[in-house]
Write a protein that binds this DNA or RNA. Sequence first.
DNA 1: TTGAAAGCGGTACCAG
DNA 2: CTGGTACCGCTTTCAA
Lengths: 335, 335
Amino acid sequence: MVTITDVARAAGVSPSTVSYVLSGKRTISLETRRRVQQSIRRLGYQPNARARALASSRTHVIALVVPFRVDLNVPVVMQFVAAMVGAARAYDHDLLLLTKDEGSAGLRRVIGSAIADALIVMDVEAAEPRIPVLASLRRPVVLVGVPDQPQGLTCVDLDFVAAGAATVNHLADLGHRRIALLGPSPAVYERGTSYAGRFLRGFTEAVAARGLHAVSHPCVPSYDGVRVSLHQTLDADPSITAIVTHNEAVLGPLLSEVRHRGLDVPRDISVVAVCPDDMAKAQSVALTSLAIPAAELGRLAVDMTMRQLDGPAPAEIRLLSPRLTQRHSTARPRP
Amino acid sequence: MVTITDVARAAGVSPSTVSYVLSGKRTISLETRRRVQQSIRRLGYQPNARARALASSRTHVIALVVPFRVDLNVPVVMQFVAAMVGAARAYDHDLLLLTKDEGSAGLRRVIGSAIADALIVMDVEAAEPRIPVLASLRRPVVLVGVPDQPQGLTCVDLDFVAAGAATVNHLADLGHRRIALLGPSPAVYERGTSYAGRFLRGFTEAVAARGLHAVSHPCVPSYDGVRVSLHQTLDADPSITAIVTHNEAVLGPLLSEVRHRGLDVPRDISVVAVCPDDMAKAQSVALTSLAIPAAELGRLAVDMTMRQLDGPAPAEIRLLSPRLTQRHSTARPRP
DNA sequence: TTGAAAGCGGTACCAG
DNA sequence: CTGGTACCGCTTTCAA
């Protein structure tokens, strides 16, 4: 293994000089720098991250708590993670994978034993039990999602309250009066996942504000689940003219089932989906959708983490404004 | 921060004794051990992973190259990763996330700078370009997938050749004579992804061996893609009585489209899916499936990595035998 | 502009 | 059974 001392010897300088050439924290004469860089290349020197971490108390690693749940929408989670890895690499950092299974103990472990410098936590619950631990770690933390009591922790998320309202307003503007909301699977609500409740609140408030009528049900993401939900909604109230889905996993089954019932989208029924844009476009009917900007949120989460690593940054709650794109699944209801 | 020296002082012993209590590499009197453990608890001591890594040249981190591609089946990848994180934790190791984007340079980086002790590589191609680098690293490496020239690297995967044959044999046993294979998306073939070609080979060989007739097409995982594929198969040859899909992402669209054509599964057409069991069960018709044992493969990959970390282990190529479960999507063809 | 050397916090060898 | 101490490889302060 090539060490900094080997490089120093080869270049005829001291180890500290090599270190400074690498970090740029000291001005080095052009001549010396050349020689050092040449030796580094010739020897194929790669600084030892462990030694560097020990000496500088910076691991350049961010721990990421990923929700490996089946009931959560997997492709969306993947988009998040992919964006974060990319963003972290751009800052010359790596991501360490943590699961929710390890719970608070896992968070304490990676920070306490200095495996990682900071934490990004996904799948945040409204009554998030990990908050006390997170706050006690005194390390940079970014939550993807907004708990009811953030306790001074930094959060980033889509503004789901505004998102809920946006879907309603779009439909109300088109003239719909009676609409149905198919929400996430019951497990998501039971767990108190933060975004589920916030979306529902925005939805409900807008329904009231616009004087509409609405029903909402959680929805199990399967054909059977969708059949049940449609029974609870369309069958129970045939005057419903529009469906909002806040559950990416039901899109396929829903459209399939609706078509099976002989209904045309959007002629007989309008559909608004809350999902990433690419997903909305890939359906049998290009869906009017409220975008989940997973990539942007992921990048932001990393940015905010880095800012905290650079120095004390004020806690903030960053909510991205929703963006609704009309495609071919919404239209005026038939008279 | 509490260090090993603090603990030693509190317990009235030397740092090395504390270290040995922790590692168990030396017999310590019960009395001393008690005192030390008590001090550890009282002070809330957590060993510093960086220092430990530097001194022991073991980071307890395994780098995992995850394919963040949309054309790959995302839920399956997630199942893999989840299983690996769990398995790694059971060995007191963590997983570092790497993307294929970084290519060979990324592999060289994490090993060269001693960020990780070993590598697990997913999304292996038949003509895998990273093999020379991987071999040159002289570190434990496990490939999930089998390249054409493994060059002494350890691999683990489902036996896709046998899997292809198993799907054919099941259908042949039921009496089907003309079948269609809907494969992965064209991008997967173009990339030369290892499993795609192997499955196709096993499928084709079995078709010949059983004297059947078959057509196969890649399939874009969308409604349009499925429509095109069905046009190329069922429409081109109406005597086809069974479909094999080696593409988890088309299951929903396929069943929906088939139903839309007024065909009943399995009365009019049999369907065999290559996908994880839970996915097969979640479809509108419980599918006869050839299981992709993602969790088991993930666990195995970690096991094999750990074995290599324990000492020089002979290279091996471990192929899991396929398991086909008949559910409600296959039956004898109508006379 | 550069060098020497004291850490960073453990591990493990050499003694006793 | 336990202690002392020389590293592990890099960063950074102190001196020149």
